[in-house]
């Protein structure tokens, strides 16, 4: 099931993807993907590993070329003007590292300078609760702090669209909830967010709409509620009835919601 309205140029759609294809040799990674994302929307791309979601997102980010099809961000063709698109988006890679031997403020300054901007780096660190680590090196941060700093670096150009690739993978529940709060704040600020995730509860919590990808195609695209209703309408029944609380609720009840990132994680890097 693919969306059919993409050829019409919606005025409110900041991302427009039309029939995108990409193959690596015999393997078709992206097989005719079309969708569009409205300005201010949080849009999720879900799918098992190898479904083609990372390739799709990387084409949208201007980090990879497509074989055919088109992708527009804010009306700019990503294939023709990748640099222009990169000016108006922020990309958080799944696992990224930053310069050694520069502290957080210095790294943010370098990133801002790429956009020829002079920023108050401390303000950006405050937004992700890292102000007290301003002079720290990236490698000295804990896993959650690294992820938050990585998000901070994507904000220096005040992007219209944020791409977050599995933003909460490997984070503890407190750090995950903090990341969710950040995403909600970006939405409140009017930014468009496109995220990929393996966590369905994350998609339900954050996304206005989700696209579920498999084998390079979009298998379903709609609001999470609507997709669930559609499944139930087919007569689906969950084998065990839903409890009113989950184990995560128990965990958070016992350990609180405050961020736990006093020190670096030993398994970091």
């Amino acid at each position: 099931m693919t969306e059919t309205t993409t050829s019409e140029n919606h005025h409110g759609d900041i991302i427009q993807v039309n029939n995108l294809r990409k193959s690596y040799g015999d393997i078709v990674a992206v097989d005719g993907v079309s969708f569009s994302v409205a300005t201010g929307e949080v849009f999720g791309i879900l799918g098992p590993n190898g479904a083609g979601k990372t390739t799709t997102v990387e084409i949208l980010e201007g980090m990879r070329s497509s074989d055919s099809g088109s992708a527009l961000i804010n009306g700019v063709d990503v294939q023709k003007h990748p640099q222009a698109v990169k000016e108006i988006i922020g990309i958080q890679l799944q696992s990224s590292s930053f310069f050694d031997r520069l502290n957080l403020v210095e790294i943010l300054d370098v990133f801002a300078s790429i956009y020829r901007r002079q920023i108050d780096a401390m303000e950006f660190l405050r937004q992700v609760q890292l102000a007290d680590r301003a002079k720290a090196l990236f490698k000295e941060l804990s896993g959650g702090q690294k992820q938050r700093f990585s998000v901070a670096t994507t904000l220096v150009n005040d992007p219209l669209v944020l791409f977050l690739d599995e933003p909460t993978t490997g984070l503890d529940p407190q750090a995950r909830h903090h990341m969710w709060d950040l995403v909600k704040r970006f939405k409140d600020e009017g930014r468009t967010v496109l995220l990929t995730t393996h966590y369905m509860e994350e998609a339900e919590e954050l996304c206005d709409r989700v696209a579920i990808m498999d084998h390079g195609k979009i298998a379903a695209l709609d609001r999470p509620d609507t997709l669930v209703d559609a499944l139930l309408a087919k007569g689906f029944e969950r084998p065990r009835s839903e409890r009113l609380a989950t184990l995560e609720d128990v965990f958070l009840d016992l350990t609180g919601r405050a961020l736990r990132d006093a020190g670096p994680e030993t398994d970091g890097q």
């Binding site: 640099q83 990309i91 990224s96 790429i114």
Partner: peptide, 11 residues
């Protein structure tokens, strides 16, 4: 370490 990759995600 993916530092270059992160840089290439900028213009």
């Amino acid at each position: 370490r993916g530092i270059l990759r992160r840089l290439l995600a900028t213009p």
